[in-house]
Amino acid sequence: MGEIKVKGRIASLLEVGTGFHQELTGRENIFLNGAILGMTKREIRSKLDEIISFSGVEQHIDTPVKRYSSGMHVRLAFAVAAHLEPEILIVDEVLAVGDADFQKKCLGKMQEVSQQDGRTILFVSHNMQAVKNICNSALWLNQGKLKILGDVSIVINKYIANTKEANMSQYWASPNDAPGNRWARFKQVELVPHFANPDDALDIRVPLTVKFQFWNMQDKVQVSVELALFSYGGECIFDVPSPVISCQKGLVSGQCYIPGNFLNDGSYYITLYVVKDTTTTLFAFEECLSFDLEDFRGEIQWYGKWSGAVRPSLPFQIEQVNVFK
């Protein structure tokens, strides 16, 4: 048991159907929720059309909500919670029920509410990219206890590093045991860091080479390999294709070089795609490699989280051209 001190009007979206009277229609439930939040009928009416339009359930707004699907429940519940202007909006992972387009719509609305309207959102999720897009601070709970509270990027990176182990090499001796299908099977994938010194840490300065070998199981095929690098928050950092080569049945080998001082610090994974004729994916070897890059600042004395998906070292000139007298 515990206690919570609240300053401001709260709306919540915690579970499908929570806050709805099942015998009332969607329209009636909008007025009910508004009244619970302390709004007048005039205030609710001013938002009514916007709520109904956002929810996408216009054709069923005068139907009792007990006949709604779980997705319709969530659509209307979120529209009500987001548009009735609470000072504090609490959203649990109930959004996972909605389809992808509606989830995107909800995330956009939450960003608008928090960034433009200056209201507070308490967002509970295991979707790291959504948390990163919406929140500026994060709280990591482990078995009901506070583990870390701080900047959202720092907390996410620590959470991911705790749950994901680096996987920098995999090898299979025989096609029969290797991951793949009747068109391609991988023999080896490896991430090779090029350390200046053997005892160096794997940080953002270290160049990397991704090496791979796969058995091509087809005759006379135009093949390329696509390398996609993702953050563990789910953000694609880059997606690059190899040259196309003409292949017979046999072993194919390749590599891709990632320069140092290019990526930002954080946790990453790599997916390799074997592609035919630059259009058809024959096999996707998902999350075949993973690694963590540590930070390095050198002479820079600012220690906040460095923003951006990449952190390239680019030619940059600055000079004084005049002196005031």
Score class of each variant (00 low, 15 high):
Lys109Asp: 02
Asp49Arg: 15
Lys47Phe: 07
Val274Glu: 01
Gln103Asp: 07
Leu95Arg: 04
Arg119Tyr: 00
Ala201Pro: 13
Ile270Gln: 03
Arg42Met: 13
Val244Thr: 05
Ala178Glu: 00
Asp265Ser: 15
His60Tyr: 13
Asn261Cys: 12
Gln317Ala: 15
Gly19Cys: 04
Gly98Glu: 00
Val94Phe: 05
Leu229Trp: 04
Phe291Pro: 02
Gly26Val: 01
Phe186Glu: 00
Glu3Lys: 15
Val6Cys: 10
Lys305Phe: 15
Phe324Glu: 14
Glu23Val: 11
Leu139His: 08
Val310Asp: 07
Val80Tyr: 01
Lys105Asp: 05
Asp199Phe: 13
Ser70Asp: 05
Arg119Leu: 02
Asn197Leu: 12
Thr40Gly: 15
Leu208Glu: 01
Gly108Ser: 08
Asp277Gln: 12
Cys247Asn: 05
Ala130Met: 08
Asn157His: 13
Glu226Pro: 06
Asp101Trp: 08
Pro64Asp: 06
Gln103His: 08
Asn181Gly: 05
Thr279Ala: 13
Ile10Cys: 11
Phe316Cys: 14
Asn197Ser: 09
Ile148Pro: 09
Thr271Met: 13
Arg27Met: 12
Thr281Ile: 14
Leu24Ala: 07
Arg45Cys: 13
Phe195Asn: 00
Arg42Cys: 11
Ala82Lys: 01
Lys105Cys: 07
Gly38Ile: 02
Gln222Glu: 13
Leu14Arg: 07
Phe230Leu: 06
Val240His: 12
Ser267Tyr: 14
Arg185Gly: 02
Lys7Asp: 10
Val221His: 03
Leu272Glu: 00
Phe54Arg: 03
Leu251His: 05
Ala96Ile: 00
Ser174Lys: 03
Val124Pro: 01
Asn261Pro: 05
Val74Pro: 03
Gln143Ser: 13
Lys325Ser: 14
Phe283Asn: 03
Gly233Gln: 12
Ser224Phe: 01
Phe230Arg: 03
Leu14Lys: 07
Asp239Met: 09
Ser290Ile: 07
Met110Thr: 01
Phe102Pro: 06
Leu227Pro: 01
Leu13Asn: 00
Gly34Pro: 06
Phe283Ala: 02
Leu191Ala: 03
Thr63Glu: 11
Met217Cys: 07
